[in-house]
Amino acid sequence: MSEVKNLYLKYDNFTISIPKLELLDQGVTALCGPNGSGKTTVVRALLGLEKATGMEWVFKGEDLARLKPADRKIGVVFQGLELFPHMSARQNVMFAASARNISKTEAEGKLKELSNLLNVDHFLDQSVSVLSGGEKQRTALMRALIGSPRMLFLDEPFSALDKHLRTEARKLIKSIVAKHNIPALLVTHDDDDLKELASKVIYLDNGRVQTT
């Protein structure tokens, strides 16, 4: 378990007040709740994109809250994916590799491995602006994984996919989490996601943890 303590954020008409939050350090922790409950804000706070002073997050003996966002080494797939539209899928992934100072040879090796796993060979060299929703998602996932993150954050990653693709995507996440032994935090409000993936569910409402 990694433990988050004292996650407090105050905005004009909204507050996040989480004295304690436990995330699995294996498998998938799901964070769910109605729209506007603060799920994405919690994710951003854990990533270091929102300033939660006083927050502690001890992950395998290290307080990640003291680290800069990049140093927390968390792979993230946002709802909007935030792919670099002027680059190809390959270039998006290799960018992440060079950001982590991974050598080109090693990066190419990892890319090959991931592309086999995610079945992306046929569109790897196309510009992301012409890719379908599912293809973009897989690209975003590869980009999140190439840096060997300590944890994976997935913020409603399947929202743009049809039922069939969702099922495929869930299988993919499951196998990645198992194979690479990376714990994941999944933000969702889909019951099938919870059933298929979550080893633990945290329910958030109005900025507060209701149940786990």
Binding site: P69, K73, V76, E82, F95, R100
Partner: peptide, 21 residues
């Protein structure tokens, strides 16, 4: 800005973000 933020999260430094993004 979102792309810059993403680049920073991925661990890229200012020059890499500037040159590639």
């Amino acid at each position: 800005a979102p792309q810059v933020e993403m680049g920073a999260l991925l661990g890229a430094g200012p020059f890499l973000i500037f040159s590639k993004i």
